[in-house]
């Protein structure tokens, strides 16, 4: 049996708003093995992005436990969770999240610099070449199209060969054709690097490319196939 990349036990997440308690997620329990690719689907407002944020250690739970690559995130401070993210996690975002004042190469170098890894520049260049942007190494995000920016983001996400990759609507801001190319690239890289992929999407076609689908409705798990 493969090791668990991520394990969630009876997770609750609520927020206080105008003196009311709003339940965002309730009683979520699931496990994801290393190497799995999982799609989290649901309608808008179902809690997908909240679940993603909690799984990645970007937010605190109200109750319950989350273990990522053997680290109990719920017992960690923010800086400790940051360290776990640096060592194990990669991200791809809907809005690309590139730093506008860094070039494509410099954006890809960022996670390696956080980990103080050597040869960051050459590895970044290699990764950008892999995603087909060898001719755009010194260009800035505002000089790239949406698809090109997302490819830079993919390069950044995979350059440190993370154990887990979280992708939040990676094709959400792209047209269908570009989105498909990005999706292809995402799954290719995932296979090459053998990461665990956790993908939030409302795109059913994209979800079908994953091995498993987790469906959320109104903050609760409906199916986990």
């Amino acid at each position: 049996m493969s090791n668990l990349a991520l394990s969630i036990q009876t997770l609750h997440k609520s927020v206080e708003l105008n003196q009311q308690t709003i339940e965002i997620l309730s009683n979520i329990s699931l496990s994801i093995s290393e190497g799995d690719s999982v799609a989290i689907v649901g309608s808008s407002g179902s809690g997908k992005s909240t679940l993603l944020g909690l799984m990645a250690g970007l937010d605190n739970t109200t109750s319950g436990a989350i273990t990522l690559m053997g680290n109990n995130l719920t017992e960690m401070s923010e800086d400790q969770r940051a360290k776990v993210r640096a060592e194990h996690v990669g991200f791809v975002f809907q809005s690309f999240q590139l730093l506008p004042n860094l070039s494509a190469t410099e954006n890809v170098m960022l996670p390696m610099e956080v980990l103080n890894q050597k040869n960051a520049q050459s590895r970044a260049a290699t990764m950008l070449e892999r995603v087909g942007l060898s001719h755009r190494l010194t260009h800035y995000p505002n000089q790239l199209s949406g698809g090109e920016q997302q490819r830079v983001a993919l390069a950044r996400a995979f350059v440190t060969q993370p154990d887990i990759l979280f992708a939040d609507e990676p094709t959400g801001n792209l047209d269908t054709k570009t989105g498909n190319h990005i999706a292809d690239l995402l799954f290719e890289l995932n296979k090459e690097v053998n990461t665990t992929l956790i993908l939030v999407t409302h795109d059913e076609h994209l979800a079908k490319r994953c091995q498993r689908t987790i469906r959320l409705e109104a903050g609760a798990l409906v199916t986990a196939s």
Binding site: A56, A82, K83, R85, A86, F91, Q97, L99, P111, V114
Partner: peptide, 14 residues
């Protein structure tokens, strides 16, 4: 703010 959030997300401390 976005820059700070990204650096934190990628593993930078406060």
């Amino acid at each position: 703010y976005d820059t700070s959030a990204l650096i934190r997300c990628l593993g930078g401390r406060q």
